[in-house]
Structure formats: C-alpha cells, structure tokens
C-alpha cells in the first residue's frame, strides 16, 4: 500500500514527539488504542489560563498513518482554544493526509486521543475545584459557571 506524500512527510519528520508532565494540572493526557491493529497513541495538551492550548505532544506506536495522524493533530491543536480543539474531526485528518479507506481508523484514533486529552484536562480541573483550589484556566471557570 502506498502512503501519500503528506503521510510520509509526517512519518519522517514527526512534529511534537515527546512527553508533557502528566501530573501538571495544566496538562491533559489522552491515551487511546486500536484493538483491531494494536496501535497505541498518547496525546497531551498544555492549556494556559485563557483556555488556549499552548503546547501539544504525542507518542504513537503504530503504522505510518497513525503516526502522521497524531503528528498532524498536535500541529493543529497548538494555539486553539479547547472549544475549537473539540471541533477537530477525523474526516479533516483523512482529507489533509489523503488516507485510504483502510487507514481511516488511524484518524479516528487521533480524534479520540484529542477528545480524551481534553476530557482528562477538564476532569483534573474539576477535581482541583472540588478540593477547593482555584480553577487554573478561564475555560475551566467557564465550564464550571455553565453548570
């Protein structure tokens, strides 16, 4: 199976490979897997006081398409608000990377990773609030006020 140029490019020069401190309250970690192929993907975001993603890192053990999908996702996440990040769809990743039908699940995995990183960040914020600490970000405050 031939990979598209963009997939190869991300595979050979993956952006934002690495780790953020998962214990940092400003960091959200998403860990997802594809049982059909055994790929595992970790995607982390760092969120500032204004609810903007200032940094994103990933580590993926899987095929070229899974690596490219998560690499692209981290690129897209930086500078976005959590609300904007939530709107990223796997179909956008498919389109950008020209993924063939058999590799669509890689983009689904990346979308899941984004959502699960955001959910992790939010639940950490909620836990801090429950313990009486001030919410770290405006997004968390807004989410809190909205409840």
């Amino acid at each position: 199976m031939a990979y598209s140029d963009k997939v190869v490019e991300h595979y050979e020069n993956p952006r934002n490979v690495g780790t953020l401190d998962k214990n940092d309250p400003a960091v959200g970690t998403g860990l997802v897997g594809a049982p059909a192929c055994g790929d595992v993907m970790r995607l982390q975001i760092k969120v500032d006081d204004g609810g903007v993603i200032t940094d994103a890192k990933f580590k993926t053990f899987g095929c070229g398409s899974a690596i490219a999908s998560s690499s692209l996702a981290t690129e897209w996440l930086k500078g976005k608000t959590l609300g904007e990040a939530e709107t990223i769809k796997n179909t956008q990743i498919v389109e950008e990377l020209n993924l063939p039908p058999v590799k669509i699940h890689c983009s689904v995995l990346a979308e899941d990773a984004i959502k699960s990183a955001i959910a992790d960040f939010r639940s950490k914020q909620a836990a801090r609030r429950a313990l009486g600490a001030e919410p770290v970000t405006a997004d968390a405050a807004a989410a809190h006020a909205g409840k």
Binding site: L31, V32, G33, A34, P35, A36, C37, G38, V40, R42, K59, F61, H105, V108
Partner: peptide
C-alpha cells in the same frame, strides 16, 4: 464480524502498560 470500529476498547490499564512497554 470483525469490524474494527465495533471492537471493544482496551482497558486504560492495558493501554498504559503497552505504552510503557513500548517506551
């Protein structure tokens, strides 16, 4: 039917473990 989207998701503990083993 082996439909990749319909398969049960792995437990977080297993994923964590596999990630650590790969690292």
């Amino acid at each position: 039917e082996l439909d990749e989207r319909a398969e049960p998701k792995a437990s977080p503990a297993l994923l964590m473990e596999m990630m650590e083993l790969q690292e």
